[in-house]
């Protein structure tokens, strides 16, 4: 046990610690909570005529998410366009996460099992796309998949198709774009997890009568799960809020939540609705993460 004098000294140093970190805490509070509070406040205000907000309490922003005023009858009807956009966002983000995992896992495994020198080279190649602006990368995809683009030109020349395959400005285009853009975010955490995986465990599994499939399911996946969770979050969250990719590859028709929010702050001139939509996005992400983490934890405990 420490003496009272020592305890006092410890308490003093704890106080000093807090005191010293105050500036950082203030910056942190302003940077993270400030914008959030502004968005929350705006979502409860009335829209101004030419954008901006009117300082009067109103629930119109929140109501606008689900109901929209019919132009002719002035009655509130279900905003099915909004709901379709939400649904598309969740669906595309989920598919993107799944696909980046399906492609990223073998890739990460391949890299993690190379010799150290080759490994560094492969990781370097994986990160190269990050050096280019997102917009440019997305336009590059556009260049490949558009009707007169590289893919269709080659296939037409080869005589494999007679009509261009129309992908551009569809959900598929958005999905391809997002998968391409977010793949590295899946590969890197998976690589980190697989790199720590003890390959002897594979032999232990085979030795104990597990088939290849069982070794994958019962040994590899549970052990690299932290990497899978990290990768999935890193892909799912930005996918849900994606803006550039659906804009360029969805051609403004296949909107996602990000584009809808942008619309409200721009042409729509309905800032409260935009703010309410932003908060909804945040809530969807939070709920999705909670479900995911809960489910992931249960998997570990439930074996055997």
């Amino acid at each position: 046990m420490s003496s009272p004098a020592e305890q006092a000294q410890i308490a003093q140093s704890v106080r000093n610690g807090w005191l010293l970190s105050t500036p950082a805490l203030i910056v942190l509070a302003f940077a993270s909570l400030g914008p959030l509070i502004i968005v929350i406040v705006y979502s409860f205000l009335a829209p101004g005529k030419y954008g901006n907000v009117e300082w009067a309490f109103s629930l119109s922003g929140w109501r606008g998410i689900i109901y929209t005023k019919d132009i002719f009858s002035d009655e509130y009807v279900l905003a099915d366009a909004h709901l379709a956009i939400f649904w598309r966002s969740i669906k595309l983000s989920f598919l993107t996460t799944l696909t980046t995992f399906a492609v990223g896992f073998p890739t990460a495994w391949f890299i993690a099992t190379r010799a150290p020198k080759a490994r560094a080279m492969w990781l370097f190649l994986i990160t190269i796309p990050f050096w280019t602006n997102l917009l440019i990368r997305t336009y590059a995809i556009n260049e490949v998949i558009r009707n007169e683009g590289l893919m269709n030109t080659v296939l037409l020349k080869l005589g494999l198709i007679t009509q261009p395959i129309v992908i551009i400005y569809t959900d598929i285009a958005v999905f391809i774009g997002m998968t391409y853009v977010y793949l590295p975010l899946m590969v890197l955490p998976l690589f980190a997890a697989i790199d720590r995986f003890d390959m002897k465990l594979l032999e232990a599994g085979y030795d104990l009568y597990a088939s290849r499939w069982q070794v994958l399911r019962r040994v590899i996946l549970p052990i690299v799960k932290p990497g899978i969770i990290a990768g999935s979050i890193l892909v799912f969250v930005p996918s849900l809020g994606a803006y550039v990719t659906p804009r360029v590859l969805g051609g403004g028709k296949q909107m996602m939540i990000g584009n809808l929010i942008d619309l409200q702050f721009g042409q729509g001139r309905n800032w409260p609705l935009g703010a309410a939509l932003s908060m909804t996005l945040l809530m969807i992400v939070t709920i999705a993460l909670l479900i995911y983490v809960r489910y992931a934890n249960k998997e570990t405990g439930g074996h055997g």
């Binding site: 002897k200 032999e203 104990l208 549970p222």
Partner: peptide, 29 residues
């Protein structure tokens, strides 16, 4: 293949499954 042989190995590094309990490790085979 190893999973078809009634032969088991005790590895030098033990190679125990870190995600399983002692009992689950023993019951794995």
């Amino acid at each position: 293949p190893p999973n078809k042989r009634p032969v088991n190995t005790v590895f030098q590094s033990y190679a125990l499954f870190p995600h399983l309990t002692v009992a689950q490790n023993v019951g794995f085979g």
